[in-house]
Design a protein around this nucleic acid. Structure first.
Lengths: 143, 143
DNA sequence: TCTTGAAGCTATAGCCACTAGAGCAATTAG
DNA sequence: CTAATTGCTCTAGTGGCTATAGCTTCAAGA
């Protein structure tokens, strides 16, 4: 049995994050010690490591909830898990495309800056006038 | 003079967002009509367009606040504006690198999925065991 | 056994940049 | 004049945590 701190170190997840996952129902409520402290079985480590790894791959917690549900039913088809991962891959690719457009725009803007005064600063000017831009940009990647 | 709705349409910014920008001090409080409705001068459109464009380029509102402050002082050096834009470019490049690593990991995971049952699903397995991974990933791009 | 410090507990608030909704007042088009 | 649209304020919610306050429990050393 692990304390929450040991579990957190083992899975490399911060203690408040574990409590948060419990609060939103991603981790089951564990038993408590006589002094009301959480005591986790070994299986909690697997589940938490799964969550952490999926988070590192950018899956939102809702998708992780689904994946955890699937992993509890080993006999079913993995088509659903595949679909979730594929959606995540699509989302990641989408963000890369948009960020590359932003990168190009910022590069262009900075290339034109002659480091003079604000009044002839291309950075400020470009920001003030969309017509200076090469692309459209839709601002959906501003986390 | 614009109503808030006309201003929003002109700058392509949603009305509640304009009120939010006012609330956090990014836009000055405008005069009101006899019936307490906001009335904006033409200059508000420039300022709002500037904000929207900077947001589309991924600048956080705090950086935009600084840029707006700079654009109000056209005689100063544009070095500060340049630095803000450069920091934003660095941040964008950083996110692209991390997202590409995630993309590769997800691709590998999906390539290995033979579409069988959950019990031999590589997607679930890879998520459960970090040792299957090619890279480290640090989970800092999960917005 | 006592003590001290680390680790645990709950509850609340904050982060970013909005978005949604309730319930009402003002304006505008027909 | 009426009905539709737009506006107003206020509150709460989003995602995924993180931080703080004020308390209790536990583990290790003297």
């Amino acid at each position: 049995m692990f304390s929450i701190g040991k579990l957190g170190r083992a899975a490399r997840v911060k203690v408040p994050t574990i409590r948060y996952y419990e609060q939103i129902g991603l981790l089951p409520e564990p038993d408590r010690s006589a002094g009301n402290q959480r005591l986790y079985p070994r299986t909690a480590l697997d589940r938490l490591a799964f969550i952490r790894h999926a988070r590192e791959l950018g899956f939102p917690l809702d998708a992780i909830r689904d994946l955890l549900g699937l992993s509890d039913h080993p006999d079913q088809s993995c088509a659903a898990a595949d679909a979730i991962a594929r959606a995540q891959l699509d989302a990641v690719r989408d963000r890369i495309v948009r960020l590359k457009a932003l990168e190009g725009e910022l590069e262009r803007m900075l290339d034109q800056c002659a480091s003079g005064t604000i009044s002839d600063c291309r950075v400020i000017e470009v920001l003030g006038d969309h017509a200076n831009c090469a692309h459209d940009h839709d601002g959906k990647d501003l986390g």
